[in-house]
Design a binder for these strands. Structure first.
Length: 586
RNA sequence: GCGCCUAUAGCUCAAUUGGAUAGAGCAACGCCCUUCUAAGGCGUAGGUUCCAGGUUCGAACCCUGGUGGGCGCGCCA
């Protein structure tokens, strides 16, 4: 409909150019906006305001001339000059009501792009280190990333969802050492667990599983394990040196294969858990991309060679540095240490090279806000390798702080006292989690109140929206009980009977849905859809309370139920895009 | 110290990305169930959009300078 109005304005502009009122070379972009206030009509254009200066004319006079030059349209009831020079368009009821037929005809397809946009994007999200279960902080990134990916797909873009698995590096070795030490305890030995190890209960479970598989084949005397190991922090030493020495010791006392066995026991078990957790959260990834694979495939070497060849690497103090300052970074970054080991950043460079080689039109990374310091250097590397850094879109997700009523819940991964995503889902349900996580703009800090998410009342937007859906479904049941039938065709013919303000508002709201989906997708802002659904549900509850649907007059009854069914369909479509279920009864 | 995010009603947040009179929900107060789910609805009240300048037809939004909050500033991952 906006398109239609833009065409009308374009025709008017052409007319004015022909009449010599506007300079012929003017090529303005025509903006048609939804009005905030319905007394301003359905749509408004600010074209006269933007053209006033180049046309050397007063905006209101120009608007008047434009209105006079607008072609007739069957859809537009009337136009009006308002305020400083806005042109307001009032659509006629029939053209607005047509949306109901569209919704019912298209069903689950309503709101999806009519044609593919011919773009392929990758969305990488969650990508939590596989050193423990996902916690509530990952939950927001998960819900946000999934919603963005689903929205982009709805907007006609081909989407690949990817999880980058950090299965290499020191943290993973700490995990392996933690598992091994718990396993040694399982074998009956007594030892002092390192303060810097992973202490969660899941480590015990993994160790128990390992013991079930290999019995005491990987057992070594604790005395040997701890012989000459530098003291841990509680004993007055350095916890980092302590754990590193333990890792090295594990690698000495165990053969390479044996160490790998322990390492993989931790990695695989945790990855499986994460995968299951996300699956239950309604999130599927097409690819689980292994960091370790980047080294074995030679991508890391290739990425560094590429930088080397273009003259962006140099050697100092035995380390190899990437001159990222040439691309706006505050300092250069080491990519290869003097001992020959590449850094995590080198893997990241290789990973992004790999992404770009896969030929996506856009690569979207969803990161926790604590990673913002990496944006500049990653973009620097991309540019240095000769790729377009603007194709990489990095969305930062701010932290969510959990509250139980007034009480603020603490989180700390190492101490094992964190709230996991699974615990959160068990407590408030996946639906509420998915919805709450995306009701706020991603770059907005948010408070997540467990009590509210659990409450089954209108205070809780998830239940409020789901209830609107269930209400409509229940009307269908009552209809049959009353011995009536809903005749959709008859309802569609009689839409003109829906002439109350409530009904008009509701129908207008339905017409906005496709645009909301598009906006939410292209701006990576699922909260727009969440807010829209709340408004639509609110409009429906208002309507439901104001009028009775099950009435004697067949035509009006059919029209009202037809409208209700269209609302139900849109609620269903919208909730599904956010990964929230639309129950038929509650 | 430097960088990124942020500041809107008592609280949690919106504002169609620069549009007209800044909107919702909580909380407060007053109403509506012999009527399709009261798991709901109606109404009242609540604002110098952190401060000071600037840009323009027009600013919560853009620019400059402050102030408060969050996060980051490893050859860790």
């Amino acid at each position: 409909m906006k398109q239609h109005i833009a065409e009308l304005i374009e025709a008017a502009l052409a007319q004015l150019k022909q009449d010599g009122i506007l300079p012929g070379e003017l090529e303005p972009t025509i903006m048609v906006e939804n009005t905030r206030d319905k007394s301003h009509g359905d749509f408004a254009s600010n074209i006269a305001l933007t053209l006033a200066k180049p046309a050397r004319s007063n905006p209101r006079q120009l608007a008047e001339k434009l209105i006079a030059a607008l072609p007739e349209s069957a859809q537009v009831d009337r136009t009006e000059l308002a305020g400083p020079g806005f042109i307001n368009f009032f659509m006629n009821d029939a053209s607005t009501q047509a949306v109901i037929g569209e919704v019912l005809a298209q069903g689950a397809q309503f709101g999806l792009a009519k044609a593919p946009r011919g773009q392929r994007v990758q969305v990488e999200f969650v990508s939590a280190n596989p050193t423990g279960p996902l916690h509530v902080g990952h939950g927001r990134g998960a819900a946000y990333g999934a919603a963005v990916a689903d929205l982009l797909q709805a907007a006609g873009i081909e989407v690949e969802r990817e999880y980058y698995v950090n299965d290499a590096g020191r943290q993973m070795n700490i995990l392996a050492a933690s598992v091994w030490l718990r396993y040694l305890e399982r074998c009956g030995q007594t030892l002092t667990f390192p303060s810097n190890g992973y202490k969660g209960d899941y480590i015990h479970d993994i160790a128990a599983g390992l013991y079930d598989d290999v019995a005491d084949a990987l057992n070594r005397p604790a005395a040997d394990v701890f012989a000459d190991i530098p003291a841990d922090e509680p004993a007055g030493g350095d916890k980092e040196l302590h754990i590193d020495a333990l890792i090295e010791r594990a690698q000495t006392l165990l053969s390479a294969d044996e160490y790998r066995r322990v390492f993989d026991a931790g990695l695989n078990s945790i990855l499986a858990d994460i995968r299951e957790d996300l699956g239950e959260f309604g999130i599927q990834f097409q690819h689980w991309f292994s960091e370790r694979g980047l080294t074995s495939s030679g991508d890391v070497d290739r990425a560094l060679a590429s930088l080397q060849e273009k003259g962006h690497l140099y050697e100092q103090d035995g380390n190899i540095w990437f001159r990222s300052t040439a691309f706006g970074d505050d300092k250069d970054r080491v990519v290869k240490r003097a001992n020959g080991q590449t850094t995590y950043f080198a893997s990241d460079i290789a990973y992004h090279m790999n992404k770009f080689e896969r030929g996506f039109d856009k690569v979207i990374n969803i990161w926790g806000a604590d990673h913002h310091g990496y944006i500049v250097r990653v973009k620097a590397a991309i540019q240095a390798m000769g790729y377009d850094p603007d194709k990489l879109e990095i969305k930062l997700v701010q932290f969510a702080i959990l509250y139980r009523g007034q009480e603020r819940l603490a989180m700390s991964t190492r101490s094992g006292s964190f709230v996991t995503l699974r615990e959160l889902r068990d407590e408030v349900g996946s639906d509420a989690c998915r919805f709450f996580y995306v009701t706020r703009k991603a770059d907005q800090h948010m408070d997540f109140d467990l009590e509210l998410a659990k409450s089954e009342s209108k205070d809780n937007p998830v239940y409020y929206i789901q209830y609107a859906h269930a209400r409509i479904c229940s009307v269908q049941g009552k209809l049959t009980e009353a011995g009536w039938q809903w005749n959709q065709a008859n309802g569609l013919i009689n839409l003109n009977l829906l002439e109350t303000e409530h009904e008009k508002d509701l129908i207008t709201k339905l017409t906005k849905y496709p645009e909301i989906v598009d906006n939410a997708a292209l701006n990576f802002e699922p909260h727009l859809l969440a807010n829209y659904l709340r408004e639509l549900a609110s409009d429906y509850h208002t309507y439901y309370n104001a009028y009775k649907l099950l009435i004697e007059e067949t035509d009006l009854r059919d029209a009202r139920i037809t409208l209700s069914q269209a609302v139900r369909q849109v609620l269903n479509n919208g909730l599904r895009l956010l990964g929230v279920s639309a129950p038929e009864q509650m």
